[in-house]
């Protein structure tokens, strides 16, 4: 029982980090119907950015998110504006898969040139600290990351639900032509939305670099997990992807504790297969088209 509860704690904390990464992916899919295969690579870019800035400045990696977030936002807007916007609307959904995969490979190549393929870690000194709460270990970094994920998801929620920009994003998702007729600049909303989705990788990248050694090729593993979470949650449903991320985090930790860590990663793919076979619209797929 102790092992199960410990796995639940670890899984929930890890799931929170995946929720942050997947929410950006879901936002991008919701607004533009683009499956962004570069989201994992953007996370790794953010990890390297945090790594380099930490080495240069010595500032805490969590504080560096303030600097990396606007950088990742600009990178996202530039990707959308120069590589995705020119695609013909009729072919955009299919071609964007190829384009974002090419972006992922390009980023991996660029990072490999600059940083080589050596595994790196961000080590501020407290990366292995843990608290003992009623006999259970709570990793300090994962706990901060979990709190950060909740804060970032809260900001994302408030932005989408309580601001005029958020209304224009949700309107564009639900009925693009109608939104345009009401004066919404759908091109600007798409670019800003893509940038916003990519900007979530700044926090996710910092946390990923703190809890996992990474190299430029780490994005393959990451994107497969993210896609599993997004499909499980229901494409385009941010709330669904958060719950799915927590479920997957807990599921993988339980498998790791009760069976073997080798089978832990495989849990994601078994779940993906089952969802695609039994409930293709995902556990929390929106009944209303594009309901963010």
């Amino acid at each position: 029982m102790h092992l199960v509860i410990q796995a639940l704690i670890l899984g929930s904390l890890t799931g929170g980090v995946y929720a942050l990464m997947a929410s950006g992916q879901t936002l991008i899919f919701g607004i533009m119907k683009v499956i962004n295969l570069a989201q994992g690579a953007f996370v790794i870019v953010a990890s390297y950015l945090t790594f380099s800035l930490f080495q240069m400045t010595g500032l805490d990696p969590f504080l560096l998110i303030v600097i990396t977030t606007p950088i990742m936002f600009i990178l996202g807007v530039a990707t959308q504006w120069f590589l995705l916007k020119p695609l013909r609307p009729d072919d955009a959904a299919e071609l964007s898969l190829l384009v974002t995969f090419a972006v992922a490979l390009g980023l991996e190549g660029a990072l490999s040139l600059f940083y080589k393929t050596t595994l790196r870690s961000i080590m501020p000194g407290y990366e292995n600290h843990s608290w003992t709460v009623w006999g259970y270990q709570v990793n300090e970094v994962r706990f901060y990351a979990f709190l950060l994920s909740i804060a970032m998801l809260g900001i994302l929620y408030l932005l989408l639900q309580k601001t005029k920009f958020g209304r224009s994003v949700r309107a564009t998702v639900q009925n693009p032509m109608s939104a345009q007729l009401l004066g919404v600049n759908s091109k600007a909303v798409s670019a800003f939305g893509f940038g916003l989705g990519v900007s979530t990788t700044a926090a996710a990248g910092a946390v990923f670099g703190l809890i996992t050694p990474f190299n430029p090729g780490s994005h393959y593993d990451l994107i497969s997990r993210l896609l599993t979470i997004v499909v499980l949650g229901g494409m385009g449903a941010i709330g669904g992807s958060v719950i799915a991320a927590l479920m997957m985090g807990v599921g993988a930790a339980l498998v790791s504790a009760l069976a073997s860590p080798i089978w832990s990663d495989f849990t994601f793919f078994i779940v993906l297969l089952l969802v695609l076979l039994i409930r293709p619209r995902g556990l929390f797929g929106a009944k209303v088209r594009g309901a963010l």
């Binding site: 224009s168 949700r170 639900q174 009925n175 032509m177 109608s178 007729l181 009401l182 309901a291």
Partner: peptide
């Protein structure tokens, strides 16, 4: 102002939010 043929409301948004979208500009 153009009210198109297909249902042009934003179905997952409230009536109030839809009305506010009419005043977007």
């Amino acid at each position: 102002v153009h009210v198109p043929q297909d249902r042009s409301l934003f179905p997952a948004m409230t009536v109030w939010e839809n009305i506010l979208m009419g005043a977007f500009i």
